[in-house]
């Protein structure tokens, strides 16, 4: 086993974003020099974090990277990671777990936007809330998350699982507006409430355990299952997606 602990140092301009796609377990094998970007300045990893390495291994499965301190502005941690574990003790910045292909990320605080963007495999567990576009694709991209699992213990922001194509997202709290928009596969499960779910979905399954507000008029009610109403749609695009809802908002101003 090898444990790498990265503790954020105090910064003169704490609001500057840090781009740190090199923080993936594999990169800590050996003693390669690593760089991050703080605004438009390239910095050595050691200038931004206090780095402590314990143990020595030569394969990434046995590496645990721990991020400590004020990491809410650190972006792209775990990008393209394929194995090993990243544990974030506080909050994490945008694009954590971008294009992930394996391994685990555990976030004890909140995650900012684009968590697990276009991930293919592996798992992300966030104990706090997730920002907008969790499990979605990049702008104009036709596919979001394609495999793996994201679990959010708190709430998720808007456009959760936009273009979801495979894998599973489970949010224990509420989600914002347009969860599962353009869904084309995979499973999106929200235990709480949501606004305008599954807009323009073409395939996949979206399950809402709470109240669906402002339901779209273009879903066809096809029956009931496990105490939930089952819809098919979105008929605006001949979609064959399945949308299951515990409760559709009554007297919706929009219906």
């Amino acid at each position: 086993m090898m444990q790498v602990t990265l503790t954020m140092k105090p910064r003169a301009k704490p609001f500057l974003p840090i781009e740190a796609e090199m923080i993936v377990p594999m990169n800590f094998i050996g003693s390669r020099e690593l760089f991050v970007w703080e605004g438009n300045k390239k910095r050595r990893l050691e200038d931004v974090f206090t780095v402590r390495k314990e143990g020595n291994v030569n394969s990434p499965e046995n590496i645990v990277v721990i991020l400590r301190g004020d990491t809410g502005r650190v972006k792209r941690v775990g990008e393209y990671m394929s194995s090993g574990i990243i544990t974030i003790e506080g909050d994490i910045g945008m694009h954590c777990g971008n294009f992930m292909r394996g391994g685990n990320i555990v976030i004890h605080g909140n995650a900012d936007g684009w968590l697990g963007r276009e991930m293919r495999a592996g798992s992300i567990l966030c104990h706090g809330n997730a920002g907008d576009y969790c499990g979605s694709g990049y702008r104009g991209e036709k596919r979001g998350m394609r495999g793996g699992k994201i679990e959010i213990m708190g709430d998720a922001g808007d456009y959760l699982g936009e273009y979801l194509t495979g894998g599973e997202i489970h949010v224990h709290g509420n989600a914002g507006m347009f969860a599962g928009a353009e869904m084309r596969g995979g499973t999106l499960k929200i235990d709480g409430d949501v606004r305008i779910p599954a807009a323009n979905m073409s395939k996949g399954t979206c399950i809402i355990g709470g109240v669906a507000h402002e339901m779209l008029p273009t879903f066809e009610k096809t029956g009931e299952k496990n105490g939930m109403v089952v819809f098919h749609g979105d008929v605006a695009n001949k979609g064959k997606g399945e949308l299951m809802i515990r409760q559709v908002q009554e007297n919706s101003a929009l219906q």
Partner: peptide
Amino acid sequence: DQGGDYHVLSALRAIIRERGGVIPDMVAG
């Protein structure tokens, strides 16, 4: 109704696609 643009557009698309049967009697006012 405020915020109902998306709903109305979806309904119009469904009607053009000959799936108007699914649309409820009122959409966003």
